[in-house]
Simulated scan of single mutants.
Amino acid sequence: MRDFSRSLPMGLLRAREAVMRHFRSALRRYDLTEQQWRVLRALSSVDEIEAADLARSTFLLAPSLSRILRDLEARVLIRRRVPQEDQRKSLIAIAPEGIALMEIVAPHSEAIYADITRRFGADKLAVLQDLLRELEREMNSFGPNGEEGQ
């Protein structure tokens, strides 16, 4: 078995933590968690989205997303509505206050991205993002037991 520190999941987690450490301090200034920011970012790219689709796109479990949505709704950063045609669904949209907050936080986020790019290098960052997308595609083309097409 390979050394624990050389396992792919641990390497990805270490890299994620190293990157997120820089973003968390900026988010904390605006009383946002990284998961709340992830939800706001996802909502900023759509007019409205069903809660289950939002959970999938943000890689959040439904119970965690429910709590996050409740907190964001209490802060009037999002709006939630139940469509007349299907009372079981919950449609979520970013509120004007959420857009305003994103406009305040975004320059901090972009400054962090600029710093990461400066330190790591634009070319290496582009290659890394391409490799991560390629790894994701490959892993998604196989089932959990390594069987193709699952």
Rank of each mutant, 00 (worst) to 15 (best):
E48R: 13
M139K: 12
P63K: 11
D86M: 02
M139L: 15
R137F: 08
Q36H: 07
A26F: 00
A114T: 05
G121R: 04
L91P: 00
R81P: 01
D47T: 11
L72A: 06
V39N: 03
R81T: 15
E136L: 11
I112S: 03
M139G: 10
L60R: 07
I99K: 13
R75N: 15
L32R: 00
R88A: 13
S45A: 11
R28H: 09
V82A: 12
H108Q: 14
Q35H: 09
A55I: 04
L91D: 04
L65K: 05
S64E: 05
L32V: 06
Q129K: 11
A51T: 09
L77V: 11
A100M: 08
L101P: 02
A74C: 01
T58D: 07
R75D: 15
L72I: 09
T58M: 10
R80M: 12
E48W: 00
S109L: 14
F59C: 08
Y30H: 15
L77R: 03
L40V: 12
R29V: 05
K124N: 11
L65Q: 04
E136Y: 04
I49C: 00
L61A: 15
A51Y: 01
I68N: 03
S44N: 10
T33E: 03
E97V: 06
A106P: 00
D31G: 05
L77D: 07
R28V: 11
L65F: 03
L132V: 12
R38W: 00
L43E: 03
E134S: 11
R28I: 08
P107Y: 06
L69T: 03
L101N: 02
A111Q: 11
E134V: 07
A111E: 09
E138V: 08
L61C: 10
W37Q: 11
R118F: 13
P83D: 06
L27W: 00
A55R: 01
R41A: 10
L101M: 04
D31C: 06
E34W: 04
Q36R: 11
A42K: 05
R79L: 12
R38M: 05
L128K: 08
Y30A: 10
R41W: 00
D115G: 06
A51E: 10
T58S: 13
T33H: 05
G98A: 04
L91S: 06
R137A: 15
L54Q: 03
V105P: 01
R75T: 15
L69E: 04
Y113Q: 14
S109C: 12
V105I: 09
S44E: 01
L40S: 05
S109I: 13
G121S: 09
L77K: 06
W37I: 07
P63W: 02
D47C: 07
Q87E: 09
R67P: 02
V105C: 09
A62S: 13
D53V: 06
A26P: 00
I112N: 01
F120D: 06
A52T: 14
K124P: 01
R80A: 08
D47H: 07
S45Q: 10
L40E: 01
E85R: 14
L91E: 02
L135I: 03
T33Q: 05
R67E: 07
V76A: 15
E103G: 14
A111K: 11
S90V: 14
R137Y: 07
E97Q: 13
V39F: 02
D86R: 15
V46Q: 07
Q36D: 01
